[in-house]
């Protein structure tokens, strides 16, 4: 490690997530997994678009969706994308405190998004739009719920990694984990961009 550009006290390499073979494998493997997730969500989107007008006499997309709430949810996720990238930048400066702080904010934003989504679903159920009420209902809750499930898994995963970080610190073993968790979080946000566009906005337009 004769790298003079590393200004930190420890000898962590500049891109610790790719410093070991295991790290590079994890990095690439996770990207490939995201490629598979792309097709997974595409199949769900295709199904939803095929069934979104099959309301079976229940409320339609125009009647149900409330744009202000979706807008708030979108902003929350966008901000969390920014905070997770700030966490990774802190990691690249070997700043564990910064990493923990920004991931902490990301997790909080993730939970508030989930809270908002649950509130939204409860609202819809009161309007008679349920998982079993129509093909549209099944497709809606499956697509949006799959995304929500990804958000839930993401916040729990990042939380577990944060707890590990307290004990293990930032090493070439933990760094790839933080890095791929952040990739996952960005991808979940990316899917949401299409959900608010295709499900909510296009649903409002008709």
């Amino acid at each position: 490690m004769s790298d003079t550009h590393v200004q930190t006290s420890t000898s962590l390499p500049p891109e610790p997530e790719k410093a070991t073979m295991e790290g590079r494998n994890k990095f690439l493997g996770f990207w490939l997994f995201l490629g598979a997730e792309t097709v997974l969500f595409a199949s769900l989107f295709g199904t939803y678009l095929g069934l979104r007008n099959s309301t079976n006499g229940g409320p339609t997309t125009q009647e149900l969706f409330s744009l202000p709430m979706v807008f708030v949810a979108t902003v929350i996720l966008l901000v969390s994308s920014l905070t997770s990238v700030l966490a990774i930048q802190a990691m690249h400066r070997n700043n564990m405190k910064g990493l923990q702080f920004w991931f902490g904010v990301t997790v909080l934003l993730g939970f508030s998004f989930l809270g908002l989504e649950i509130y939204e679903f409860v609202e819809y159920v009161h309007h008679g739009h349920t998982f079993t009420s129509s093909a549209f209902g099944s497709a809606f809750y499956t697509l949006v719920g799959f995304h929500g499930g990804h958000v839930l898994f993401g916040v729990l995963w990042i939380l577990v990694l944060q707890l590990q970080g307290i004990k293990k610190g930032l090493t070439v073993v933990t760094a790839p984990k933080y890095y791929v968790a952040s990739l996952y979080w960005h991808f979940v946000d990316l899917v949401w961009v299409f959900i608010f566009t295709v499900v909510y906005l296009m649903g409002k337009v008709g």
Binding site: K18, F27, L28, W31, L32, L34, G35, A36, T38, V39, F41, A42, S43, F45, G46, T47, L49, G50
Partner: peptide, 28 residues
Amino acid sequence: DHEFPLTFMMSGVFAAVVTVAGIILMIW
């Protein structure tokens, strides 16, 4: 270092577009 991620994400997007377009066009 992102050549393969780029290749595979783009292939994924291709498969995704074919899937969505195929399903919805043939259903509509």
